[in-house]
Design a protein around this nucleic acid. Structure first.
Length: 205
DNA sequence: AAAGAGTCCAACCGCGACCAG
DNA sequence: CCTGGTCGCGGTTGGACTCTT
């Protein structure tokens, strides 16, 4: 199997096969393109480099701010974060975080004397650890202010059915920015608020 | 100018989830 | 259920490039 950097010729062949067959069944794509690359490698190349509408470099201040806020909320869930940044890939955001933002955060933390609690190798922040994330009770249409709020982070942050321009509830939540994930009671209230905001704004829209 | 250190990013790897048979 | 194939994710690596001494 060929490994290492892709050539322009390989890119061209891969794009050609995907244009005909679509971006699925990566093993057969790799075979059809006759690239001597594994399907996994082809998939990665397509998603991170060849796919249409990819933005490269120059992460704007707005994007950086969004990454910081979403990371605070979600931890190292790069694909989820990338999903909120059109044209950006999870790999790019992960790299940007590791090379720019993590240092920025650590620097800030040192300056203010506050520990940022970074460096969790599991990638799951306290929101995942302290909270039993269960399937949201589907019959429960109201969100009670008690400690039994069930919250599925994957379900909650699944934006696949959302209009990208219709995420006002998320913007408002991110603007709150004043919660502490380690206090599970505060988190519970925060999640309650979040669910109410999401439902409320959706019903208005 | 050269060498070593640091930075960045494309690509690889391992693992778990999902799904069809 | 079980199994094998496939996919997607997050962590890690390697090499090119830049900076510092």
């Amino acid at each position: 199997m060929n490994k290492g950097a892709w050539t322009a010729e390989e890119d061209r062949k891969l794009a050609e096969v995907i244009a005909i067959n679509g971006a699925k069944r990566w093993k057969s794509i790799a075979a059809k393109a006759a690239l001597d690359r594994c399907g996994k490698s082809c998939r990665l190349r397509w998603l991170n480099y060849l796919r249409p509408n990819i933005k490269r470099g120059n992460i704007s201040d707005q994007e950086e701010d969004l990454i910081l806020r979403l990371h605070k909320l979600l931890g190292n869930r790069w694909s989820l974060i990338a999903g909120r940044l059109p044209g950006r890939t999870d790999n790019e955001i992960k790299n940007y975080w590791n090379s720019h933002l993590s240092k920025k955060i650590n620097h800030k933390g040192k300056q203010s004397g506050v520990s940022t609690k970074e460096g969790d190798k599991t990638g799951k922040k306290s929101i995942m650890v302290n909270f039993e994330l269960k399937e949201e009770n589907k019959s429960n249409n109201t969100c009670e202010e008690d400690s039994n709020v069930n919250f599925n982070v994957d379900d909650f942050f699944d934006f696949s059915n959302e209009d990208p321009l219709n995420l006002e509830w998320m913007s408002r939540f991110l603007e709150m920015d004043k919660f502490e994930f380690d206090e599970s009671s505060v988190l519970t209230r925060t999640v309650s608020t979040l669910l109410v905001m999401k439902r409320g704004l959706k019903s208005v829209n």
